[in-house]
Design a protein around this nucleic acid. Structure first.
Lengths: 219, 219
DNA sequence: GCAATTTTGTACTCAAAGATACAATCACGA
DNA sequence: TCGTGATTGTATCTTTGAGTACAAAATTGC
């Protein structure tokens, strides 16, 4: 049975295992990572793994949760204030910057995991749902505030704008990952920006279709 | 060694294996699919697998190529004429429709595979690169024609607009997959549409920043 | 119809990797 | 210092699933 570490050393060991497993999984994919690899990378023995995690699946689940927390924590500082186009642009910049890592370009850790594991089990799937919801919550709130201040067209659906932005982020990071080009993220975010801009109160004109309210694509 | 089937029966068997493997992989992910499962689903014996494919990796590679061909072929009919907003809208509609399958909502088969395998080996990665390039080629061409006809701002970069659109498609399908909601695809494509619209000649005004040309997000 | 080739069925081998056993060592509090 | 529990090292067991062997059946070409 998995034991929660009580001492500082134990916590450090558990953290090292998690760290090593996360990196390996991010690099090579969930299926390609052997427990031996994790051991070697973390500098621990087999017994440690089974001391802190019940089995391989438990470790993977822990990696998922840790990854989600890490990624969301990285966004945190920018989060409080996404209530202006300038702040949102800054946020976008941080996402672009985070997409360029020493171990490779692009690829949202959450998105990559989600693509691999969202069908795995119900609990894990729910974790991803929560992650995306938590991720976009500050944007929804910021957009709402902009709308209240009259900086966003009253007809705009802020939730839909946020969803659309999340899709752009994920798609941009995926393409950047495959193409190994951070430029893809930038372009994708430009798309989201255009959609947001189209809902900006100042540029919302009734005579064009720039408003990104739902229905444009309805059959 | 893998043998190419020469008879009709052989081709049918090989096709059945490929079909079964593709569905299982799409459903459960590459790592979770055992050869036993493929056998059972395809109704063949172990010997058939190794008659038509050298090993598991060879089968997976074949699935990748077959999936790419299938997905691109589905887009083909719409491809010839993506040179107006109307045609592009129709194209979007077909993508939304394809995202709703009996076996689950959303999830571009190519995108999901790419997330799992783009790091696997160089050849497979190249296959994904080619796939995305082939996928967006008709859009680039269509947009170019629109630009030549003056329906798109002369300053717009059609390649970037196409890249941005691809990111929206992929992100939308990924979110739709996780959230099990086809609406996510629609929203994402609305975002791409807004970006395209912003570059439409008629709505391109020098006094706003709607033009999706590069540089908006540059530091 | 018959030989040659292709296709298929079943049983088996074997290595890899997950999981376990258990003793040794360490760290902290009394 | 001593004892207890937490932590770690090593060796071993077990299961899974990829890959192989080989013969039977079906199909094709002559």
């Amino acid at each position: 049975m998995a034991t929660e570490p009580t001492t500082a050393r134990g916590r450090a060991t558990r953290a090292r295992i998690l760290q090593a497993a996360s990196e390996l999984i991010f690099r090579n994919g969930v299926g390609a990572v052997r427990l031996d690899d994790v051991e070697a990378a973390a500098g621990v023995g087999r017994s440690q793994l089974y001391h802190y995690f019940t089995d391989r699946d438990d470790l993977v689940r822990a990696v998922v949760h840790a990854t989600i927390d890490t990624v969301l924590a990285m966004q945190k500082p920018r989060y409080a204030t996404l209530d202006s186009l300038l702040r949102i642009d800054e946020w976008f910049e941080s996402i672009i910057a985070n997409g360029i890592r020493p171990e490779g370009v692009g690829g949202c850790a959450i998105g990559l995991l989600a693509a691999q594991l969202s069908e795995h089990d119900h609990v894990t799937r729910q974790a991803f749902l929560d992650a995306f919801t938590r991720w976009e919550a500050p944007l929804i709130e910021g957009l709402s505030r902009m709308q209240q201040r009259g900086e966003l067209a009253v007809g705009a659906d802020v939730v839909e704008l946020a969803d659309l932005t999340m899709a752009a982020i994920q798609g941009g990071l995926l393409l950047a990952h495959v193409r190994r080009s951070p430029h893809q993220i930038r372009l994708a975010l430009q798309g989201a920006r255009a959609a947001l801009l189209a809902s900006t109160a100042s540029s919302a004109r009734p005579d064009d279709m720039s408003g990104a309210s739902a229905g444009d694509l309805s059959p």
